[in-house]
Simulated scan of single mutants.
Amino acid sequence: MTKKPLHNIYSKEILRQKLESESVSRRTLSFYRYVIISDPKTMRDRLYSDWEDLGVLGRIYIAREGINAQLSVPEPNFAALREYLDGTTEFKEIPFKIAVEDDGRSFLKLEIKVREKIVADGLDDGSFDVTDVGVHLSAEEFNRKLESSDALVVDVRNHYESEIGHFEGALLPQADTFREELPMILDLLKDQKDKEILMYCTGGIRCEKASAYLRHHGFRKVYQLHGGIIEYAAEIRRKGLPSRFKGKNFVFDGRLQETIGQEILSECHQCGNSSAHHINCANPACHVLFIQCESCAEKFDHCCSEECKEIHSLPEAEQRKLRKGKSASNRHFSKSRIRPKVFELHRKN
């Protein structure tokens, strides 16, 4: 009997064709939980085998400390996924964050990885109590706290996330990674320990560590938005509440963003015109994430520079030769460092 492969075996083109040919709609959701998983590798293989049968696509991280999942599931199998998780001791009654906007094309494949941590934070968890987290606030409670003159709002996300959308009056650390951001936040707030600190992130997971980190450093009035921006958007729509979040919510899947407010807060990284459209450079050897307006998308053929545009126009075989042995994953336009020359040149043209 042939053993079932516990990893993707199809090309991106085939995966896209399979997704496009589906006759059912999909639901995109995310969830996380800090919980001890005694054997992450065994858990990983079990989830892959069972979730593939349910048609789950997505990116899931498993570690001894828990699970962090962003995925999509065919609508007819949504209840089965809920039942599956409730039947697994570690994940029983785990809260779902349902996508605000969903075209069903958020993921192409199922990818489950075993990691040291479910979020890379660079912290020594043994040096402080990671369970001593801030007070969780609903959207309604968060809005009420925002009206207090004694409150400081802190965005616990990377700069390319907060650039396109954030809460009114929030501190926006210009960090490239969560690992970099934690000491930045501590420095920004070092003289504010008597203030109420309101923290938020995409789905709540980064606030769990960040709030415990602040409490460890002497901050006592620490609050965090329950369920993050995703749950905030759902609750304000459900209850008819005013939204204090402006612009778009960055998400780590094929959609790249969800619209929460209609405001455009950011600029095209190439020409400076108003835009909130994130895109990965069409040259696979580059693949840098940046903001590009419609005009520059047409001018540069969805690439970040003339050089990448020229490479992108070459036959695929030549492109493969040029990018052989090179990695272009997880690269993004960096505001926290010197602006890349390609974007400076475009501004002068």
Rank of each mutant, 00 (worst) to 15 (best):
residue 314 L to Q: 01
residue 118 I to C: 09
residue 261 G to Y: 03
residue 279 I to T: 15
residue 171 L to M: 14
residue 329 S to E: 15
residue 121 D to I: 01
residue 170 A to V: 02
residue 61 Y to N: 05
residue 184 M to F: 02
residue 242 P to I: 00
residue 126 G to V: 09
residue 68 N to D: 07
residue 331 R to C: 06
residue 155 D to E: 09
residue 71 L to D: 03
residue 202 T to N: 12
residue 256 L to D: 12
residue 296 C to W: 06
residue 318 E to I: 00
residue 19 L to G: 14
residue 327 S to D: 10
residue 265 L to D: 14
residue 5 P to W: 02
residue 31 F to E: 01
residue 142 F to W: 15
residue 244 R to A: 14
residue 11 S to A: 00
residue 156 V to G: 09
residue 334 S to N: 15
residue 17 Q to R: 01
residue 325 G to W: 02
residue 79 A to L: 10
residue 91 F to R: 15
residue 131 T to G: 00
residue 61 Y to D: 11
residue 190 K to H: 15
residue 117 K to Y: 14
residue 72 S to Q: 10
residue 143 N to Q: 06
residue 52 E to L: 06
residue 126 G to W: 11
residue 314 L to V: 02
residue 54 L to P: 04
residue 23 S to R: 12
residue 247 G to I: 08
residue 9 I to C: 02
residue 139 A to Q: 09
residue 258 E to W: 03
residue 29 L to P: 05
residue 167 F to K: 08
residue 264 I to H: 12
residue 116 E to G: 14
residue 115 R to T: 13
residue 279 I to L: 15
residue 95 P to Q: 03
residue 133 V to E: 08
residue 243 S to C: 01
residue 59 R to Y: 10
residue 296 C to D: 03
residue 250 F to T: 06
residue 192 Q to F: 08
residue 63 A to L: 12
residue 110 L to Y: 05
residue 78 F to G: 04
residue 135 V to I: 01
residue 127 S to A: 11
residue 147 E to H: 05
residue 297 A to S: 15
residue 129 D to H: 04
residue 280 N to V: 05
residue 321 K to Q: 12
residue 322 L to N: 00
residue 210 A to W: 06
residue 31 F to G: 02
residue 292 Q to F: 07
residue 147 E to S: 07
residue 55 G to K: 07
residue 84 Y to L: 12
residue 306 E to R: 12
residue 168 E to V: 13
residue 308 C to S: 11
residue 266 S to F: 10
residue 183 P to V: 00
residue 181 E to T: 01
residue 264 I to K: 09
residue 199 M to P: 11
residue 300 F to D: 13
residue 4 K to C: 10
residue 159 H to S: 11
residue 66 G to L: 05
residue 178 F to H: 04
residue 147 E to L: 08
